[in-house]
Simulated assay, not measured.
Amino acid sequence: MCTNILIHTQLEGAGFGRKGWFPVTRANVTYDHPFHIDLEHAVTVDFVDEAGGLDARVGVELTVASARALAEALLAACAEAEAYESGGAARG
């Protein structure tokens, strides 16, 4: 069965790769056959600088459960950061 889910989002940030730090301008999130983990399918997140070519890319392959846990952790961190920035107390 061919599964090919691909979602793009524009980003503003930085990543660390083979040649050091580079701008991160986009994330490509896929659900497809992984290259490095022994699963039939995985969620892959590629953080890329579209102008930087292959040297400006960091890829991560995750199980679906791990991808969900990461998404939940990101949302929790954003909620705490927003609370902190608005004058509330952050955990720490």
Rank of each mutant, 00 (worst) to 15 (best):
T25D: 15
E82I: 11
G13C: 10
G15I: 14
G20L: 09
N28Q: 11
P34T: 08
L74W: 08
G13P: 11
D49Q: 04
G15E: 03
G53R: 05
A65Q: 12
G53T: 12
I5G: 00
L6W: 07
H33S: 13
Y84D: 10
E80G: 13
P23E: 03
F47C: 09
G52F: 02
Y84I: 13
A51W: 04
G59F: 01
E61Y: 00
Y84V: 15
L74V: 13
A51T: 15
A71C: 05
A81N: 05
A77V: 08
E82K: 13
S66Y: 01
A77T: 15
E40A: 12
I7C: 10
T44L: 04
T63V: 05
H8M: 02
G59R: 09
N28C: 08
R68Q: 04
G53E: 07
L6N: 08
L70Y: 02
I37Y: 05
L6P: 00
V48Q: 01
V43F: 02
A79Q: 13
H36P: 00
A51Q: 13
C2N: 10
C2E: 05
G15M: 10
A56D: 08
W21L: 14
A69T: 02
S86I: 04
A83D: 15
V58Y: 03
E12P: 00
L75Y: 09
G88N: 04
E12I: 05
L54S: 12
V45W: 07
P23C: 04
E72Y: 06
A56T: 04
V43Q: 00
L54C: 08
G92M: 08
G20M: 06
D49K: 03
H8S: 04
D49M: 07
W21M: 13
A67L: 03
V43R: 01
F16T: 14
A65W: 01
V43K: 01
T3G: 03
Q10Y: 06
T3C: 07
F22L: 10
Q10N: 12
L54W: 11
L74M: 14
H36Q: 09
T44K: 05
I5L: 12
N4Q: 06
A67C: 05
G88K: 10
A71V: 07
T44E: 03
N28W: 02
I5H: 03
T30W: 00
G87P: 05
E82S: 10
D46N: 07
Y31P: 03
M1S: 12
H41A: 06
V43Y: 01
V58K: 07
H33Y: 10
I7P: 01
F22Q: 03
E50K: 11
I7Y: 11
D38G: 05
D55L: 14
G13R: 02
H41K: 07
S86P: 02
E82N: 14
A76T: 11
V48S: 00
R57I: 02
E72I: 13
F47M: 12
E40L: 12
A89T: 15
L75C: 09
I5E: 07
A71M: 12
A79N: 08
G20A: 10
Y84E: 14
P23M: 02
V43W: 01
H41C: 04
A81H: 12
S86K: 14
G53V: 11
W21C: 09
L6V: 12
A67H: 02
R18T: 15
G52M: 08
I5W: 05
G15F: 04
G17E: 12
R91S: 08
A42C: 11
E85M: 14
